[in-house]
Simulated assay, not measured.
Amino acid sequence: MADYIEPKLASGFKDYLPEDMIPRQEMFDRIRAVFENFGFVPLDTPGLEKDEIITGGDPDFKMNVWHASIKDDSEKMALRFDLTVPLARVVAGNPDIKKPFKRYQIGKVWRGERPQAGRYREFVQFDADIVGSTSVLADAEIIAIMNATMIALEIPNFLIRINNRKILNGLTEYAGFSPDKNSAVLRAIDKLDKQGWDKVSTELCDAKIGLTSEQAEAIKKFVDLRAHTPIETLDAVEALMIKSPTAMNGISELRELVDAIKAMGVPDEKWKIDLSIARGLGYYTGPVFETVLTDILEIGSVFSGGRYDGLVSKFSAQSVPATGASVGV
């Protein structure tokens, strides 16, 4: 028997030797330069947070996170799964930060997911967020940063897909199912790109979610809506969901956002309104966006985010609006 420990990595982790790190560092530098060119300033936070910070005190928290503890210490801790929740904690704990606060952060995050090709349990995220602004101009600036970042990385074939969680929250009024099922319905819709409609429909109608076939078909009609221009898409969904006040609010926001994106100079061919975009994280409250590589759609979103106006209030009595996006490397 060998008298040494096999030098084998844990599943879902990766070493980056110099031949890997040199081009990665160049990529990091390009992304950082874009963020700073837009006037964002750096922030850093610990990789380890109190468990209640990471979960937001939510007993139904669904993300698989890495929990940690120290022997003979009762404090429960967890590794961060993104950089947005720690940002919300920082803003809540430092109310004097001048706003709007445009910050970027680069750091490792950890997710207890099953490893897949190209997806690891530990990876680097680059975040850009604007905290303290309710204006759609802030959302449009984040989308402009996403566009500029992809250009800086010399990735020509990409598309930024945009939706609004208020429209998605209006599905309960439109399709006629109970609001307490909405989170599960949105998590199912979020799998549409990877699993296809048949599997999503099966999940929607299984015993756990329990939609009827008619309700699932109404959702399919919604996510299948297509038109030639963003305004035509919004006109079509407005006609479909006219009886949902919640959806009407989201449609109105997207009409403003369309004008703001155009004012930011993002080329029309690089973005679209896509009603199938749900974003799985529950803290999103308004516009949401995902960037996909049009040559390899099967890998899913590579740069995504949205508006999360309620997250800071989980850690403070103050309500602070925020929007942002992150790219994983």
Rank of each mutant, 00 (worst) to 15 (best):
I54S: 00
I54N: 02
G57I: 06
P59E: 08
P59R: 09
D60H: 12
F61L: 03
K62A: 15
W66T: 05
K71C: 07
D73Q: 08
D73Y: 07
D73F: 10
S74F: 14
E75H: 13
K76N: 13
M77P: 03
L79I: 08
D82F: 05
L83H: 07
T84Y: 06
T84M: 05
P86Q: 08
L87W: 08
A88Y: 06
V90L: 12
V90R: 00
V91Q: 04
N94D: 12
P95V: 04
I97E: 05
K98I: 11
K98L: 08
K98S: 03
R103F: 12
R103Y: 10
R103E: 04
I106T: 14
R111F: 09
R111H: 10
R111E: 09
G112A: 08
P115A: 09
Q116F: 06
A117T: 15
A117L: 13
G118H: 12
G118T: 14
G118E: 11
E122P: 05
V124R: 01
V124A: 06
Q125R: 02
F126W: 11
F126R: 00
F126Y: 14
D127Y: 03
D127R: 07
A128W: 00
D129Y: 01
G132H: 00
G132I: 00
T134R: 14
V136M: 14
A138G: 03
D139W: 00
D139C: 03
D139N: 06
E141K: 01
E141M: 03
I142W: 04
I143M: 06
A144M: 07
A144D: 11
A144R: 13
I145Y: 07
I145M: 12
M146D: 09
A148N: 08
M150V: 01
M150Q: 12
I151D: 11
E154P: 00
P156K: 09
P156A: 06
N157L: 01
F158N: 07
L159M: 15
L159R: 07
I160E: 02
R161F: 09
